[in-house]
Amino acid sequence: MTDFSHIVQFFFSGLTSGSMYALIAVSLVIVYKVSLLICFAQGEFFVIGALAMVTLVSKGLPMPLAFVLSILISTVLGALVQRMLIKPIQNAGIGNLIVMTIAISLTLRGAALLVWGKESHILKPFSSGAPIPVLGATLQPQVLWIISITIVVLIMIWIFFEKTKLGIAMRACAENRLGASLMGISTDKAALLAWAWGSGIGALAGMAVAPLLFMQYGSGVMPMVKGFIAVSIGGLSSIVGSVVAGLLLGTVEAYTIGLISSKFSDTIVFSLLMVVLIFKPSGLFGKG
């Protein structure tokens, strides 16, 4: 039988993958809100952020500097992708744009294969220290990092989109393009910023979990799928919804793996998605 310490342990692993899904989901929502487009390349920014940090640390850079630089690299990459590949075809129709993001995803994955090879890389934890015993379970210090990073990012996003003029302007672009243009808000600039932010947050998710996973060029695929499921469950344009759904998804997955079998975890996650989509097609927190 499973005892209580196992239940706690599953909760920790649920929280870990849940935070990761939540961050990816948030990065998807930010791009979606401004561009009305799901960026299927988000999983690659997840990988590139993590692997860039692995490389920078292996070159002897201190952790904090490697951390900041990796975010910067991914942010700039996201901005470049938007300017060079998305903006030129922005009026081509949503189908073409989605295919373009899939093409970008495959291209970036190929580029990651060239740069980092097929092998898996592991990043050392952000801080050293022994696992912390909690109620008979053990908590890796890195999990605390993941949770703190998630909380800090969410607070920053909330402040940005609620309190700063630029953030409010970006929401206005998403809601009413004509209205925003008449205020002198550049919808081009808003889309660029959304991609930069989104890529940075996607990368951050990858960097935070890299010490717990073996990261290689193709590691972004499943997190991207799970992040997308979280967005669909939570509601496409709801940041709160995608965070709740991401955490829910991670927890359900962890308990399924722990209490039933890892073979069933994807089945249960996809069933959950289907149930939500049937009864509330716009997602739990979506409108309309």
């Binding site: 003029k165 302007a169 206005a172 809601e175 009413n176 209205g179 925003a180 205020m183």
Partner: peptide, 17 residues
Amino acid sequence: QIFADLTVRQNLILGSY
């Protein structure tokens, strides 16, 4: 063409964007 999802205050702030 107001921003329905933003508050009145936020709408006005964007007026002087």
